[in-house]
Amino acid sequence: MSFVALAAVFVTLDAYFIAVVQVLVYAGAVMVLFLFIIMLLDLREEKTRRVRLSAWVGGGLVIGGFVSALVQVISSLPGSGNTKPVVSNPEANDVALVGFTLFKDFNFPFQIIGVLLLVATVGVVLLSRKELK
C-alpha cells in the first residue's frame, strides 16, 4: 500500500527516524496483520453487493466540500509557498535528537504509551480467546 511511499516522503523531509518507524510498524506489522485477517475471514460475498446511489452522492458531497475547503485553506496559508529552509547542522543525528526530546520533555507521555500498549496486548489476547464469556 501507500505506507512505504509515505516513508520515502518522510525521508525527503529529513525525518529518518519517523521513516524507519513507519516502515517497521506499518509495512511490517499493520499490513501483515491486515493480510492475516483478510485471509482468515475469506470474503466471498463482496462482489454480489450493490452500493446505494444516495450513499455515493452524500459521501461525494462531503468529500468534495472537504477538498475545496482544503484547497482554500492551503492557498491562503502564510508561508505555504516556502521551499525547505536549510537546517543549521545537516549532519545531526536525527534518532538521537528525537530520543532526547522523547525522554526529556515527553517522558511521562512515553510511559503512559507503554501502559497503553500493555493494556492493548492483554485486551487483544482476552478478545481473541475461543469463547467469549
Binding site: D14, Q22, F34, V87, S88, L97, T121, V124
Partner: peptide, 27 residues
C-alpha cells in the same frame, strides 16, 4: 536552525497508538 522535534515525537506517539488500535480493532 534545527527542525522542531516535538512534532516528530507526536508522530511517534500517533504511530504507537495506531498500532495498538489496529490490534484491538482487528481482534
Amino acid at each position: 536552525g534545527m527542525p522542531n522535534y516535538n512534532g516528530q515525537v507526536l508522530v511517534f506517539f500517533i504511530i504507537t497508538v495506531a498500532a495498538a488500535e489496529v490490534a484491538v480493532g482487528l481482534a
